[in-house]
Simulated assay, not measured.
Amino acid sequence: MASTEQLIFNEPHAPKETAVEAFNILLHNLKAEIVKSRHHWDKHEPRMWERAQGLTDDELVSFTIEKDLIEVRSAPTSYGTIILGKLRLPKVNDAEGEGFVHVRIHDPPNRGAEDVRFHSLFTEEIRPVEENPPTGFRAIQTRERPLEFFNE
């Protein structure tokens, strides 16, 4: 398993055709995982997805890869390529601005696009003091939040 110390990510950039293709392979899975995450967190900590409050599941995942994957980064590993993506949620636009999810996918070597896999969504517990309980939760990021490696 890779760690942030072992990975060298390229700079954030607009997605190229290969990234769009990889994320499109996973489109159905990405939407299902976002809805699954929202339902899970709504049972335990509704603040995680509170920026989507009032949206149906279909509205939450009304994105397309071509229009809403706005930024990617990737890093090679011995077991393939890790790709991070910043994906706009078009129906989320509140006092904080547009809403985005950060997605991590993996493309193993030597098989083309057929084995691209979803890995995780970035969700964060906000802890100003590490030893203390979280003061906030966030699955929907702002545009300004950097697209950085996460290992969840």
Rank of each mutant, 00 (worst) to 15 (best):
P76F: 09
E5T: 12
K67W: 01
R88G: 03
V72W: 02
D42Q: 13
P109Q: 05
T4S: 13
S3I: 03
N24P: 00
E66L: 06
F9W: 10
Q6C: 11
T18E: 14
L27G: 01
I82C: 07
R104M: 14
I105H: 01
G85T: 07
L55W: 02
P15V: 07
H28M: 05
A14G: 00
V116Q: 01
L27Q: 05
L30R: 00
V61Y: 06
G85W: 07
T4K: 13
H28E: 13
V92K: 03
L69Q: 03
P90A: 10
N93E: 12
R111E: 12
F23Y: 15
K31Y: 02
Q6D: 13
V92L: 06
I83Y: 05
F122S: 12
E5P: 00
V116E: 01
F137H: 14
S37Y: 00
G80A: 11
P146R: 05
P146E: 10
E45S: 11
F63R: 02
I105V: 14
F118G: 00
D115L: 13
R127T: 11
R47F: 06
D57W: 06
A19H: 15
V20E: 12
K36H: 10
P46K: 12
H119S: 12
Q53D: 13
F118E: 00
H28N: 11
P90N: 09
L7K: 12
L7Q: 11
F149W: 14
F100C: 05
P12F: 09
R111C: 06
E152R: 10
D115Y: 12
L147C: 08
H119D: 14
H13T: 07
S74E: 15
I8K: 15
R73Q: 09
L26I: 08
V72K: 05
K91G: 00
N24A: 04
R51P: 02
V72R: 06
D115C: 05
R38M: 05
I65F: 09
T56E: 10
N29Y: 01
N24D: 15
H39I: 11
A95L: 10
Q141F: 09
D68P: 02
P109V: 03
I105R: 08
L84P: 01
T18A: 11
A95N: 10
H44V: 03
G112E: 11
E17N: 12
N132D: 15
K36W: 03
T135W: 07
E131F: 01
R145G: 02
K31M: 01
N110G: 04
N24E: 15
I65E: 06
R111D: 11
Q53W: 08
L121V: 03
L26Q: 06
V72E: 06
E148H: 09
F118R: 00
E124P: 00
R47T: 11
T135D: 08
L87R: 03
V116G: 01
L27C: 03
S120F: 00
P128L: 07
F149Y: 15
I140P: 02
A22S: 15
P128W: 04
P15T: 07
T81I: 15
V103H: 03
Q53Y: 09
A75S: 14
T135R: 14
D107I: 04
E11V: 09
I140M: 10
W49Q: 08
F150H: 15
Q141D: 07
H40L: 05
R127L: 04
R117I: 00
P146T: 07
H28W: 07
R138I: 12
I70G: 04
E71M: 12
T81E: 13
E17F: 06
